[in-house]
Design a protein around this nucleic acid. Structure first.
Length: 633
DNA sequence: TCTCACTGTCATTGG
DNA sequence: CTCCAATGACAGTGA
């Protein structure tokens, strides 16, 4: 199967390359539509509720249910789909799609890649320096390249974002392209890490790029297998001379918009774009945090910087591999953003400068307050929240209002305490995490109370945990309950009662514990109930289809039987006429076939019988009359 | 802005 | 009476 898929993929790639060489657009899906999240989301994301709880794990494995779509068993499936979409995206006669094809080819030869593959980090590390060197070639002219091989860059999924944070502070007027190079490199690195087989990439794509910013396109496109695209790309550039905003305002995917704009400015627009790029770069550094949290801004703030980044990428590398890797890697950053909230914290200042509405949107998101804005006095939302007596208990909408006493009457300490959780609520706002804690919380220490001295740049592991805190988890921590939600929910009743008795909890704490347990149990029950309902619906639909098929089959049989019966009756009638024509009555005349018929007896004898008149008469008198008439005849 | 799917939560019921 | 599972209903959220 693996070999077959490999050859099939290679065949698709070759066919797609041929089609794109002649300018045939095979199939371009929307990037977001065709994008499948990295597998880490399956395990770490908020949408993995079905596999977070032991309940579903046991149910899916013990009760014979099929594998849930979000289960890790489908990792390979998603990877395959991802590769297939890569192939689909090759259809555009764009330069970088050729490289995509090449990358997919490499992947296909090395097996499916998953984002959580440990080799991905290796790929990051191994390729960390190589593109930086290429960037030096690209930008060596009067530009200070500070491509320090930052170890942090390749450590986390959001390494690119963190890297940008550091860079945007260092941006100088004459160094505008440098951070973009970093971005391109980081994106490339991430792309490479995702595609896993990047370590085997041959050199020409990056190393054939001339060191000057005004790259000769012919030289760039002198890659052996891309010569034919030379004229095609130049034509494409002239065609795509449109404004970036139009590319976004139109109904195109971000992917296409980026590429379009990348070609729009061309290599000669670097000067005019440079000033805008600087701003857009800052936007880009923050959009990764906004794109998930601010749906409304996803297009306005996210698409624009992406496109601009691709512009410079196209300017500097002439839509080389960096451009192809960048667009996808940026989206990877978006999806993996939640894994690195330090970037959010570092960029909150930019956020509040960009648009105060962003905070309002965030505040309304998920019904959770944006405690992160507490750390930003300049934010109007933060000032309101900090000045008012509102707590996240009051502001969190969640589902229906809570009847919990804790919600309506939080202890005094909580009001001060919840301000210690700036990132947590932001992450919930970003992810709309209705779920309870994920498996890592199972092994979480019972109580790890926060302290106000915690800095945003704490280790990513604790932030990961904090991101996945549910509201009940927050309440439990706020009430100093030394148990996680999962522990509270999953412990036996006896143990739970013992805990209530032995820990001398206050009334509020006991109420909260019982509420948490009740909600957790009910949440699982609701999930189970919905699953059963869906199964029932599916079963009924299948039964309906089965019965419809059976009905159709029976109707066909009925029609066939009727047809056969008609044919047999016709043959019998002809045979009867033939026989009767040969039979003579007492007077020597042939029998009338309309009045007589043949009757086959059980013993094989054939008897000539007069036909009974159809009116199997209701009255005996009529019968007798007819019989008399027949006798007369 | 509306619709829809998903999800969490509450209230209720029955075992 | 309490606990628990199941389920309908409701509301929030994001696509």
């Amino acid at each position: 199967m693996q070999v077959a898929k490999k050859y099939f993929t290679e065949g698709l790639i070759q066919l797609t390359i041929l089609l794109s060489l002649v300018g045939v657009r095979v199939d371009i899906d929307s990037y977001l539509t065709g994008y499948y999240p990295p597998l880490t989301e399956i395990n770490l994301g908020p949408s993995s509720a079905y596999i977070q709880t032991p309940f579903h794990v046991l149910r899916d494995t013990l009760d014979g249910y099929g594998v849930h779509p979000k289960c890790p068993e489908l990792d390979y499936f998603f990877a395959s789909r991802r590769l297939l979409d890569e192939v689909r995206n090759l259809g555009s006669p764009r330069f970088h799609t050729q490289l995509n094809a090449w990358l997919v080819h490499q992947v296909s030869s090395t097996g499916p890649s998953t984002s959580d593959n440990p080799d991905a980090s290796v790929g990051l590390e191994s390729t960390d320096n190589e593109p930086a060197d290429a960037g030096e070639h690209l930008l060596a002219r009067d530009q200070e390249v500070h491509c320090q091989p930052n170890s942090e860059l390749g450590q986390g999924p959001c390494g690119a974002g963190a890297f940008l944070n550091e860079d945007e502070v260092k941006i100088k007027e004459e160094e505008e392209a440098v951070p973009l190079t970093h971005l391109a490199h980081s994106s490339t690195l991430e792309q490479e890490s995702l595609l896993e087989g990047i370590t085997t990439l041959p050199e020409p794509v990056l190393h054939l790029v001339p060191p000057a910013a005004d790259i000769d396109w012919n030289n760039l496109l002198s890659v052996a297998d891309l010569d034919d695209l030379d004229s095609l790309v130049t034509d494409r550039l002239s065609e795509l001379d449109s404004d970036i905003s139009s590319a976004i305002s139109q109904d195109v995917s971000l992917h296409d918009a980026m590429v379009t704009s990348a070609g729009a400015f061309g290599p000669t627009d670097s000067q005019t774009v440079s000033q805008r790029d600087r701003n857009l770069l800052r936007l880009e550094s923050t959009n990764s945090s906004l794109s998930d949290s601010l749906p409304g801004m996803a297009v306005g703030l996210a698409a624009l910087p992406f496109a601009s980044v691709c512009n410079l990428t196209g300017n500097l590398t002439s839509q080389s591999a960096l451009g192809s890797c960048l667009d996808e890697a940026v989206f990877e950053q978006i999806n993996q953003l939640g894994l690195g909230l330090e970037a959010i914290d570092n960029q909150l200042n930019y956020l509040e400068c960009l648009d105060s509405r962003a905070f309002e949107d965030l505040d309304s998101d998920s019904g959770l307050s944006l405690e992160s804005s507490y750390g930003c006095p300049a934010s109007p939302g933060s000032s309101e929240m900090s000045s008012s007596t509102s707590s996240y208990y009051e502001e969190e909408g969640g589902a229906t209002g809570y009847s919990s006493e804790v919600d309506s009457k939080p202890p005094k300490g909580i009001l001060d305490h919840h301000a210690m959780w700036p990132h947590v609520d932001l992450s919930e706002s970003v992810w709309h995490d209705h779920s309870y804690s994920s498996p890592p919380l199972l092994s979480m220490p019972p109580l790890r109370l926060p302290c106000k001295t915690e800095e945003p740049e704490e280790d990513g592991g604790s932030q990961l945990e904090e991101q996945e805190l549910s509201r009940d988890e927050l309440r439990a921590r706020a009430m100093f309950i030394p148990f996680s939600v999962l522990q509270i929910v999953n412990m036996p009743v006896e143990e739970f009662m013992e805990v209530l008795d032995s820990h001398s909890f206050s009334a509020d704490q006991v109420t909260l514990l019982r509420d948490i347990r009740r909600r957790g149990k009910n949440k699982l029950a609701a999930q189970n109930c919905r699953k059963r309902k869906l199964d029932a619906i599916t079963g009924l639909q299948e039964e309906v289809e089965r019965l419809q098929a059976q009905r159709d089959r029976l109707l066909r049989e009925k029609r066939l039987t009727a047809k056969t019966m008609g044919a047999v009756a016709h043959q019998f009638k002809q045979l009867t006429r033939d026989v009767l024509s040969r039979v003579r009555d007492a007077s020597g005349r042939p029998l009338n076939p309309e009045r007589f018929t043949l009757q086959c007896g059980a013993n094989g004898r054939v008897v000539v019988q007069p036909i009974r008149q159809p009116a199997v008469a209701t009255s005996a008198g009529k019968k007798t009359d007819k019989r008399k008439k027949e006798k007369k005849q």
